[in-house]
Computed example of a mutant assay.
Amino acid sequence: MVSLGTTGVYAREYDALDRAVEVGFASGRVISVAFPPTPSADADADHELLDRIGDYLDGDEETFDEFEVALTVDTDERDVLETVKQIDYGEEVSVSQLTRMVGKDPNEPEDVEFVDETLRDNPVPLLIPDHRVQGGPYATPRAVRRSFREIEGI
C-alpha cells in the first residue's frame, strides 16, 4: 500500500474533465471521491493520488490498487463494490452480469435494484470503477463517466 498521509481533503482541477476531482482521506485511507466543478477552498492540491489521477486522464493504465479504500458499508454492498473493483481497465460488465457475479439473481427485481443502489451510492468512484458497469446507475457523473470510458476505450 502507498502511504497516503493522514486525514484531509485533496482536490485538483483537470482540463480533461472540465472539473475537479476531490478525494477525502481518514487515517491514510480513501473515504470519498467526488467531482465538483471547482476544488474546495480548503483542499490541498498536492497528493500522490491526484498525480496518478492526472496520469490516468493522460491515458496511462492506472489501477489505483495500492491506495487503500475504507468502505463503511454492509457486507452485501461491500461484495458488490469489491467485485466492481476487480473489473479490469478497459473492460466492462452489464448490471445483469454484475448481479450474477455477486451471487444474486439478475431475474429478481430486488437483487438488481440492490446492485443498482450500491452502484449509485459508491463512495469512491474511479477507485471503485462504476464507469465500467454498463447500463446501471452511477456515482460517477455522466460527463465524467463518458470521459473515463473514452480514456479506457470502452
Rank of each mutant, 00 (worst) to 15 (best):
L57Q: 12
D76T: 13
V102E: 05
G54F: 02
R146Q: 08
G135N: 01
P137I: 05
F114E: 02
S147Q: 12
R52C: 01
P37F: 01
L127M: 08
R52G: 00
D121K: 09
E110D: 14
N122W: 12
T7G: 04
P125D: 03
L119I: 11
L126N: 08
V84W: 08
Y89L: 04
L50I: 05
E152P: 11
V84Q: 06
F25A: 05
K85W: 11
S27A: 15
D42N: 11
A34Q: 07
E113G: 05
E62W: 00
D58S: 15
H47Q: 06
P39W: 08
R142S: 06
I128V: 15
T83S: 08
A139E: 02
L119V: 12
G5S: 13
P39H: 07
L4Q: 15
V33C: 07
S27P: 01
E68H: 13
D60R: 14
R146F: 05
V2G: 00
S147M: 09
P123L: 04
A11F: 03
A143Y: 05
V124Y: 07
R149W: 00
N122V: 11
A20W: 05
A43I: 09
S3L: 08
A143T: 07
G59D: 03
D44M: 10
V33K: 12
R78S: 14
T140Y: 07
R142I: 04
V102W: 09
D51A: 04
Y138A: 06
T63F: 13
D55S: 15
S96E: 14
D76N: 11
H47D: 04
D65M: 06
D18K: 10
R145V: 02
V102C: 05
V21N: 02
E61K: 12
T140A: 08
G153D: 01
V115Q: 11
V112P: 09
R142W: 04
V33I: 14
S27W: 11
E117R: 10
A11H: 01
V112G: 10
Q86N: 11
T118D: 05
E66V: 12
L49S: 01
S27Y: 14
V133Y: 07
L126A: 07
G153Y: 10
E152V: 12
G5L: 10
P39N: 09
